[in-house]
């Protein structure tokens, strides 16, 4: 009994050392920070509420240089541009400290232009939007339904490195489900990503 208590005490000490922030939004939760205005690459100020779509809203935390972002970039932009025309609001958010190599505002403008963004790519100036969403890495996908409730959170698909070996197109399936007015079948997935460089 004494030994058990000692172990519990030790584990509490370790737990105190372990820093893990809980996800702020779970499936079914309403979005947060929807009225926060963020600077877009075209110079305007945009909030999630400004761009919300009739079918749903896609928010992706991303950046310019993370190898995982680069791996998924073509697929993310293709989905965003395609479903942006089908009634979805689309916004890509960069929450990295702008001192991070490759993530200055000017580099974001260049990146959006080179990659054919047809949607806002905005700066989360305090990283607070990412914190409040519970986003920890790039890319991190949050798809909300028409009422602003989280319908899907996770990865773009199941193979960032090899597009030709993708077997599960999670985000596309979730977008299609919302488009058809159905519930998303796979609501949460995970993939390795670059940690957001919080300010």
């Amino acid at each position: 009994m004494k030994k058990k208590r000692t172990i519990h005490l030790a584990m509490s000490t370790v737990a105190a050392l372990t820093i893990t922030s809980l996800a702020a939004i779970d499936i079914g939760d309403p979005w947060v920070d929807a009225d926060v205005k963020m600077k877009n690459v075209d110079g305007s100020k945009v909030s999630i509420n400004d761009i919300k779509g009739k079918k749903g809203t896609l928010v992706i935390f991303t950046c310019n240089h993370c190898p995982f972002v680069i791996d998924w970039q073509t697929r993310m932009v293709e989905l965003a541009n395609t479903y942006g025309k089908k009634g979805f609001g689309i916004i890509f958010i960069n929450s990295n400290d702008s001192a991070t190599q490759g993530d200055s505002y000017e580099e974001m403008q260049q990146f959006a232009k080179e990659n054919g963004y047809q949607f806002p790519y905005v700066v989360d100036e305090t990283s607070q939007v990412a914190q409040n969403f519970g986003a920890k890495k790039t890319p991190d996908v949050f798809l909300f339904d028409a009422t602003g409730e989280l319908a899907y959170h996770g990865a773009v698909d199941d193979n960032g490195r090899n597009p030709e070996r993708v077997q599960k197109t999670y985000l596309k399936d979730a977008l299609e489900a919302l488009l058809a007015g159905k519930q998303v079948a796979v609501q949460e997935t995970k993939a390795v990503g670059c940690s957001i460089k919080f300010r």
């Binding site: 893990t20 996800a23 920890k136 890495k137 995970k190 993939a191 390795v192 990503g193 670059c194 940690s195 957001i196």
Partner: peptide, 12 residues
């Protein structure tokens, strides 16, 4: 990810 920990977000 889940082999290492079901609570890991996948961030490096």
């Amino acid at each position: 990810i889940e082999m290492l920990s079901p609570t890991w977000s996948g961030a490096l």
